[in-house]
């Protein structure tokens, strides 16, 4: 078979991608405080330690709240942009969409420091969960737009027009006709924005208030060697959770593409 060497290379590459993650469960269940080989024995007490840590539970709560809010707002913005991108034509459209997508390629630290300056020095706001949400919506919106663009791509504007001709208002035409067609894309966008926000550290570290988000709390733990197995346990749960969320998001994205009647060209990006 002519692609054989390439196939071997691609599989090795996948192993390289998964190497760090594969180590997580090994150390999460390893009965030793030091994260190194050889492994000592099986234990689940890092997971029980995890459950007993109230500061961490609070951080997880903050992160879940931030991620949920971010998912909703980013998806709303994404819906506006994707709908306008798919159905309307006007001068400067490309430039405006390009500008909205800019956070995708901007170094995160630039987003972080610019928002820190505005929030703290210009507006004099106290940092809170909402400052993190504001920033996360900014960086998640491009992903939502990209996903929803896929869902809107082959949507024929004339079906919505037909509904309006038949007496529906503009909003109910959208609700009754377009929304059901793009619904899977919306779910997929919500899940992706949620996953990105839950994991985001670089910006959250600058903008988090008195209550740290989960990644910011983990960052603090990384400096204490005794806490590392607990971090491994947490990481194992997070990886499992994000794999589940991503599988659901992917299934919905595919269903959305199928509804829009286009061929799957792959990936989220």
């Amino acid at each position: 078979m002519k692609g054989a060497p390439l196939r071997v290379y691609a599989i090795l590459y996948l192993l390289f991608l998964y190497a760090p993650i594969a180590l997580l469960p090994l150390f999460a269940f390893n009965d030793a405080t030091i994260i190194a080989f050889p492994l000592k024995g099986f234990t689940t007490h890092w997971f029980t330690d995890l459950a007993a840590n109230t500061a961490l539970r609070q951080a997880v709560g903050n992160s879940l709240f931030i991620a949920a809010m971010t998912a909703v707002f980013a998806t709303l913005l994404g819906l506006c942009a994707a709908r306008a991108g798919a159905m309307a034509r006007f001068p400067g459209k490309g430039g405006i969409i390009g500008f909205v997508m800019l956070p995708l390629v901007l170094p995160e630290i630039i987003v972080a420091v610019s928002l820190l300056i505005v929030m703290r020095q210009v507006l004099g706001l106290n940092l809170s969960n909402w400052t993190v949400i504001a920033a996360h919506v900014l960086i998640c919106a491009p992903f939502s737009i990209a996903i929803l663009n896929g869902a809107f791509q082959n949507l024929d504007p004339s079906i919505e027009e037909a509904a309006m001709d038949l007496g529906e208002s503009r909003f109910s035409a959208f609700r009754l006709v377009t929304l059901p067609l793009v619904w899977p894309g919306i779910v997929s966008s919500l899940l992706i924005a949620f996953t990105i926000s839950l994991d985001e550290f670089i910006i959250a570290f600058f903008l988090t208030g008195a209550n740290p988000t989960m990644p910011v709390y983990i960052w603090g733990l990384l400096r204490f060697p005794a806490q590392l197995p607990v971090v491994m346990a947490l990481g194992t749960i997070l990886v499992a959770l994000s794999v589940v969320l991503l599988v659901i998001a992917e299934l919905f994205r595919r269903r959305g593409l199928a509804r829009a009647g286009i061929k799957d060209t792959g990936g989220f990006l």
């Binding site: 913005l77 994404g78 942009a81 956070p103 610019s114 928002l115 505005v118 919106a141």
Partner: peptide
């Protein structure tokens, strides 16, 4: 419809970068 995402990016991206 492009207005909300555009204004959002303007307020939280362009203006902050000007502030920097």
């Amino acid at each position: 419809l492009l207005a909300p995402p555009f204004l959002y990016a303007l307020a939280l991206l362009a203006l902050p970068i000007l502030a920097v």
